[in-house]
Amino acid sequence: MTRGWWKHMVLILGAIIVLAPFYMMLSYSLKSPGEIDRGVGGFFGRQEMMVDPRCVALRQPDRADIDAARARFPGQDDAGIQAALQAETETACSMRPVVFNYTKAFTEAPLMRYLLNGVIVTVSIFLIQIVVALPAAYALAKLRFWGREAVFGLVLFCLLIPVHAIALPLYIMLAKLGLTNTYAALVVPWTISVFGIFLMRQFFMTVPDDLIDAARMDGMSELAIVWRVMLPTAIPALLAFAIFSIVAHWNDYFWPRIVVTGNRDLFTPPLGLREFKGDGDGSFFGPMMATATIIVTPLIVAFLIAQRRFIEGITLSGMK
């Protein structure tokens, strides 16, 4: 420990740089616009009550409001009533900066919808990947058939093609089919995971043949063997693959950016954040950072809870 102090110095310096944007993101999501502009208030900000200018502007009392409120303020002239109403609105519109930022994140844009879309897309991608890849992996690992080498060769070749790289022809094909701006467009290109096939095949190779033969004796069909015998043995590999797949597609920005244009109902979380940034003026840093925090948090929290599994999953591509 004492001899290793320089190592800690170096690593801590690195950690500060790595954590700086996270610190800033979280801190800005807690502070008031004024504090962000002036760069004061430490990490949490002072959390003084602040007035939401947009809320006040929306509830500006008009003639009818003043007439309606006349009974509540007897003996005052119009200007007095207006001032009183103004004060009431300001109280109603004032809140702690942290509340302001996080409510704005959900009300300025349909963030809940975006998050739901993110879940729908990532989960369907993962499930379809598994439904397609597991039977193929089983056949390639455990069944003898003419053409097996050719199919596996094709899998190895397809491993060379990053889906992002062929985004343009995929986009054209989907556009020709009239599928842009649909959930299908977000999911379809990722339904085939050659990497998943390759990985599960490698894993299935290690499953003893006796297990499969016993299942056949029991009269199970091959498809039933895939789901009832092979799948349970493959849970650890499957979990790692799930993490790999979900992290990649929750965070993906490039592909949704291409196939979803304009239709906010289909926005995934990164697209929603992008939109927020696009139409935000300077005063909306707080709510925007709150949105960013909300999008980043689920994976970070899951990672902190199940670190080893996550590291296994993400670095999966390394275990060949």
Binding site: V131, V132, A133, P135, A136, Y138, A139, L140, L143, R144, F145, W146, G147, R148, V151, L154, V155, C158, I161, V163, I166, L168, P169, L170, I172, M173, V188, P189, T191, I192, V194, I197, S221, E222, L223, V226
Partner: peptide
């Protein structure tokens, strides 16, 4: 019979591999 099931099991993956990965490369 085994060969037939094997092709049946790989068919969806094969079809998607060709249509989603190979065809786009050719199209491009």
């Amino acid at each position: 019979r085994q060969a037939r099931t094997a092709w049946g099991l790989t068919a969806p993956a094969l079809a998607l591999m060709v249509s989603i990965l190979l065809v786009p490369v050719i199209v491009a």
